[in-house]
Structures are given as structure tokens and as C-alpha cells.
Design a binder for these strands. Structure first.
Lengths: 330, 330
DNA sequence: TTGTAAGCGTTATCAA
DNA sequence: TTGATAACGCTTACAA
């Protein structure tokens, strides 16, 4: 096996305590001894055992991260943001993916407990009684991304989805859309499902349109479901504008319209949500609400750090968003 | 803080050793005591401290993973494969991203050493003397993805890029392309750069074409560089087929061709590499060599496990690939 | 079948 | 300024 601190101490002719002091820069060490230790450290390539240190200090400098799915480029960006911000703060990332499955999520909470991570960044769509139980038991900072779950121990990082959807809808209306439709996400997803739907509705009502006259379809955030939803909408009503609850569904919708030879944006305007990297290069390029997932990841780590530093911190952190107009709208 | 094994022992009226035996299923425990311990475990939600256990057992059940960039959906898929396979084998993933920067990579090797990970899965493009030094010092399994680095301690998982590029080129020729060009990756990237270029060349030469008559451009695997490369190629020569060293560059090329009103595939056929998820939905959809990054990730974990189990294992593991024909070729 | 005790590699305390 | 020692929480001989 590798060397331990005693070996280094022997090689440098000092005690383990002195070696520890040199490594951590704690306490005073005579310059001569310090140099000798440094030299041995350099020569041997010794690295202190983080397990032993963690055991003693009750701190691992590791954060546990749970995301639904890395295939979704948004979450990949999110994790990238977390990883980069973690790195610059001397933290490591223990990564898990849950597919939004509650059983998995709970088992990861427990795994993180075993591994004694310093904090957890959680991105999931539902928060059950079981989640709550685990949370009660845990005594580490807990950051949630993408939802507003009510719990005193939770810090939530999210965008104001309702307002964003409201603005996007208003934009479509301002560009002449009169017969609007929406491809919603599942409503049990409070943020990307319900709140976006709710913002859309608000704009519609404000315009004096009867919600009953609106044709809605629900998708599962996949490209395919967007395609199907668009088809189903057009079979029921002639529309001239559609808001999708995410870019994938919007792209699916565009694909259907293109397949049918329907002109975008002249006949139908399409607006997405998230600003997926695909949206910019797609043909036609997609107008959308940009949410910066990379930045969101960094934000979560910062929130974690502030919490551990006992800085006062908002329980609900609002992320900025941005309306990006491309070719799929006028 | 949380409970420890002594607390559990006290609560169950047994010794810590007995609790340990129950938790790990080692040694014999009287049924009655076992039930009592199990009950306390259940009630308290106690989780053993993995740090203490790891310290003692010299094993953490954690693998360190280094990838260049999670923004690249291929690597995101790769990590997903790793994570899923790791999970099913009771392993956790410590994730880092390096941007292909050697300094970062080396520092992650050292971080992993501190954290006492059980193995490392490394995806990078270059292997320097410094990499070699770190490798020599390490005594854990080391799996490399996407390159063939020569080193006795290394297990490499990769596709036969040369043959794949050769086949792709042959396909274009079989479909009538006579004036071919290639958008290469940087040649210092042995696999995705050099080997793919080399396979292209081989097919060209075999066709009796003088390599000097071929117009080549080098990109950096980004969409933008593909766009620029296509522009530059067309300014120098009229071609009817192009192979790009990855899908992003191929998509950039397509975008340029579409912008210029050049018909795909009638005037120019385009072939990519990797099978990015975008490639299928792009307009026109992109023909490509599919490399299953998710599967590759699983493969790396399996290679790691086989190594630790002392199973005989190939030092060079070949991944399958697949020619996928879509609308960008005939 | 059970419990005691040693030891894994650190850091912090305290005395020298 | 330095070093001996205890402690972190666990597993495993070994003894009972």
C-alpha cells in the first residue's frame, strides 16, 4: 500500500504531528523541519488519506448530487456547472441519476448518508412524504433545483416559471397570434408542468380569451410527445401559435409542422422553453425562454457553501431567464 | 451527530461486533439477537460510516471518473452508462471534468488518490509523460476510454476508428461520390483525429485517387468549425461528398450547405461520426457512424470490475459501431 | 455464539 | 516549536 503520515515523519526525522502541521499549514513549524518535510512530501508523492481525515474532522468535502437524467443536455449542463463551481471551492461531486424514481432518490439519500457527504443538491420533480422523512433525519444542507418544495430545511433554486410562460405567451400575442395553444408538461411537475401552464393561462385570460376555447395537449417533455401533441392539436383546431413547456416538445412540434408543409412562423409561431443547444441550430431555429442550467448548477453550489458558512441565505433563490427570439416566431 | 455502531449495540443490548455481524451478514448471530438488532437498525435509520469502513477495509466502492466535457452529449451519455452500471454493482461515481487539460487531469489523479477511489475511468485525448508517472505510482485499475494508449497498466476501451472511417468513406463512394473531402479533427487526437483521417485516406487510395487531389480541412469538433471548414473546402474545390470526424462538424457543414442552397444529398453527401441525438432530428437528418457512448460507459465499469476480480481481461477492448444511413447521403 | 480490544490514518490537545 | 496520545467509527482476530 501507499505511505502514511508516520512513514513521512520517519523519513523527515520528525513526528507525525509536525508533518500534519506542514501539510495543513496549522501551527508553527521550524523552517528547517518544514523544508525537510516538504522535500520528503515532494519525493514520495504522498497524499494524505481523505478517509482518515474525514472520519476525524466529520467533513468530507464531497457533495452528493442527484439529477433525473444525464441524457437531457440541460441536466448535463447543470452538473457541469456544479462540478466546476465545486472544483473551485475544493469540493468533489458524487454523482447519481434517479430517472425521477422516488425509490432511487431515497436510496441515494441513504447512500449519501453513509458516505458522509457535506451536502446534497437534488433535482427532482416530486417531493413525497418519504423524501420529507429522510430530510428530517439529515443534518446537512439540502439544495433543491427546479422546484419550490415547501420545507424549512430546504433551499430552493428555481426560475419563476409562471412569469416566464406568461411573458412568452404575451410575446406571441404581441406578434399577432390570435389562436393559441399549449403543449404542456405533466401537471404534477409543479414547475415545468403546472407553473408554465399557469402562466400561459394567465396571459390568455388577460387577453379576454375564454380558456375553454383553448386546445391543450400534454406531453412528457420528449421530442416524440411534442410531435404527437402538435398533430393532435391541429386535428382539433386551426391555430397560429403554440407554446411548448420545453424545447424538445417544441422541436417535435416544429418537425410535425415542417412535415405537413405548414409555414413557420407565418402560419404557426412556435415558442419553446429552456434554450437547448439544439434550438439555435435547428431549422428553423427556435424562439425560447433561455434558462441557464450551467449557471443554475453554480448557484446551487454557492447556496450550499453559504449555508455551511452560516451566511444568511434566501430559502428561495430566483434564477434569471431570458426571452430569445429566433426564426420560429415573428 | 448521528448514531454510531456502539449506540446501536447499546440499544439492542449486544456488542458492536454483533451489530457489525448482522449488518454485514458475516459470522453467526443468534436469531433472537439478530432480530433485536434489525429492529433497532430499522427504528433508528442507522447507516454505517463509510469512511470508517473504507479506512479499515482499504476499499471505498467509489470509482473516479474524468471526462473532458459534459456539454458534449456523448460524454454525458458515457457518464450515464458508467453511473448506471456502477449503481448496479454497488459502486459510486466521483465525477470530474478536465476540458482535456493535462494539469487538471493530473490534479484529479491526485485527488482520487486522496479519496482512495478503487479505480479510475479516464477519457482524455493525450497521454503525456506526466500521466505516465502518475499511473506508475497508482496501484488501482485504470481504464481509458476513446484512445489506445500504450501502457502495461492500462486497459483501453475504444472503437476501431480507422476501420469505421474506412467503411464510411467506402459507402459514400459506393453511392456515387467521386470528389470527396474530409473535415478532420485535430491529428494529435489519435483516435477521433488521426485514426479517422487515416481510414478515410485508406479508402481514397484504394480507389486509385491521388491523396494530393483531396481537399482537407481541420476542425475542433465544434459545429462552428464544421461550418467554417465546409465554406473553406467549397471555396477551393467542387466536391460531392464529405466525411466529418464527428457529428457536430457534420452538422455545421450541413448548415453551410443549406445556407448556400446546395442540395443534400444530390449535390453533396454528408457523413458524420458518433450519432449524436441531434443528428436524427436535424433537417436533413445526418448519416453517421453510430458509437454507443452509453454502452461504452457500462463497458468501462465492467472492465474495472473484471480487473478487480482478477478475471483475465483484454488490455484493448473493441466497441462495436454501426453505419446509420439517413437523408444526408444517398 | 458473543464480547473485548487492536488497528486503519489522520488531527487536536496538551505537556514538555 | 515539538511530540505523545486520544479520538473518529468501523471490522476482525482472538478469547471466553
Amino acid at each position: 500500500m501507499g505511505l502514511n503520515i508516520k512513514d513521512i515523519a520517519k523519513l523527515a526525522g520528525v513526528s507525525p504531528a509536525t508533518v500534519s502541521r506542514v501539510i495543513n499549514g496549522t501551527g508553527n513549524v521550524a523552517e528547517e523541519n518544514k523544508q525537510r518535510v516538504l522535500k520528503v512530501l515532494e519525493e514520495t508523492g504522498y497524499k494524505p488519506n481523505a478517509l482518515a481525515r474525514g472520519l476525524l474532522m466529520n467533513k468530507t468535502n464531497v457533495i452528493g448530487v442527484i439529477v433525473p437524467d444525464l441524457s437531457n443536455i440541460n441536466f448535463a449542463e447543470f452538473v457541469k456547472g456544479i462540478e466546476n463551481e465545486a472544483k473551485s471551492n475544493g469540493l468533489s461531486v458524487l454523482l447519481t441519476t434517479s430517472e425521477n424514481d422516488t425509490d432511487s432518490e431515497i436510496s441515494y439519500f441513504q447512500l449519501f448518508k453513509e458516505k458522509r457527504v457535506d451536502g446534497i443538491i437534488f433535482s427532482g420533480t416530486i417531493f413525497t412524504e418519504r423524501h420529507r422523512e429522510e430530510l428530517e433525519k439529515a443534518d446537512i444542507p439540502f439544495i433543491v433545483f427546479g422546484q419550490w418544495f415547501e420545507h424549512p430545511k430546504l433551499t430552493c433554486v428555481n426560475v419563476d416559471n409562471e412569469r416566464a410562460a406568461y411573458e412568452a405567451t404575451k410575446y406571441l400575442i404581441s406578434k399577432g397570434a390570435k389562436n393559441l395553444s399549449m403543449i404542456m408538461g405533466p401537471l404534477w411537475d409543479r414547475s415545468a408542468g403546472y407553473d408554465r401552464y399557469s402562466g400561459f393561462l394567465k396571459a390568455i385570460v388577460e387577453e379576454g380569451i375564454n380558456p375553454k376555447d383553448i386546445v391543450l395537449e400534454e406531453g412528457d417533455f420528449s421530442i416524440k410527445s411534442g410531435y404527437k401533441a402538435m398533430k393532435s392539436i391541429l386535428e382539433r383546431k386551426k391555430i397560429d401559435g403554440v407554446l411548448a413547456a420545453n424545447d424538445f416538445m417544441a422541436l417535435g412540434a416544429i418537425k410535425y409542422l415542417v412535415d405537413k408543409g405548414i409555414n413557420i412562423p407565418d402560419e404557426v409561431q412556435v415558442m419553446g422553453f429552456d434554450d437547448n443547444i439544439i434550438s439555435e441550430i435547428y431549422n428553423p431555429s427556435l424562439s425560447t425562454i433561455k434558462i441557464d442550467f450551467y449557471e443554475a448548477g453554480k448557484m446551487c453550489v454557492k447556496a450550499f457553501i453559504d449555508t455551511t458558512d452560516n451566511k444568511p441565505i434566501d430559502k428561495n433563490i430566483l434564477l434569471p431567464y431570458q426571452l430569445i427570439i429566433r426564426r420560429s416566431t415573428k
